[in-house]
Amino acid sequence: MTTVEKYFKTISDVPVEDYFAPGHRLCAGCGASIAIKLAMKAIKSPTIVVNATGCIEVATSMFPYVSWRVPWVHVAFENTAAVASGISEGLKILNKKRGKIMYDVIAIGGDGGTFDIGLQALSGALERGHKMLYICYDNEAYMNTGVQRSGATPIGAVTTTSPAGEIIPGKRERKKDLIGIVAAHRIPYAATASISHPLDFINKVRKALEINGPTFIHVITPCTLGWRYPPSLTVKIARLAVETRYFPVFEVEDGRVKINIRVSRPKPLEEFLQVQGRFRHLLDDRNRDVLEALKKQVEENWNKLVKLEELGVYI
């Protein structure tokens, strides 16, 4: 592993080496694969990856084809944070007792494995304070099983279990405030990121790995299959998510909020929605109320962050 500067200032600073290998079976244009590739560019010392069941897991470990260049563990869907806790503590005590080398532990889960079924294990791990980084790649539904709604699916979005029908126009509930839940554990570092802003994301992974405690990064990863758009638009849509304030990019360091990508003049949310099949029905007049509800939520989320940043209060 080449020694690199602690943080990367330009794209050319980013190491050439990939610890995520090609030959994986993620869809063409998969946003999650970009996230994982970028995250693995940030590793700084021997690292082990713990992967929840999901797209990344199945598409990178179909025996005998494995797309990792680091030790990699998959146990189940909902317990990734727990498995990572065990590895982290196991290595720590072995280091203390018998001089085994320490590893950085990165846990990776999708939104289903993190917002929903894995939330309890995540909360437990964060509360116990193990040294590990948990990365949630959020494609806003259960994509691996064929696009079912999750706690990360936003209001109005169409999935196979929240279809837009004659009576119900897509998912009716709002997206869970995951980073709020995570930050409420008062862990040293939590952040959001977008694959459209690779340096911000890679540097956040690096920063998180430097911290001796639990850290968390929530990265938005558009999904060509579930969001229904042509594969070439993955990065563009991720950028629109940021530029419309749909997905604010910020960090919570020792409980204090800092907005990393300040969107002073947001693009209209419609620009983000209209390129995606899952939202197209929201542009129909009869679903105006759902569109307004989504817009209101986006605005509320942003305003809350601005307020929290201004006040400098602990969240």
Partner: peptide, 26 residues
């Protein structure tokens, strides 16, 4: 006893932690 004592938040996690630590060689 020089050990890491982890009280998990559920038995499901307790055994998951055990798999992790066993693979780590503990």
């Amino acid at each position: 006893l020089n050990a890491s004592f982890i009280q998990a938040e559920s038995e499901h996690s307790a055994l998951s932690i055990c798999i992790g630590s066993a693979l780590a060689g503990a």
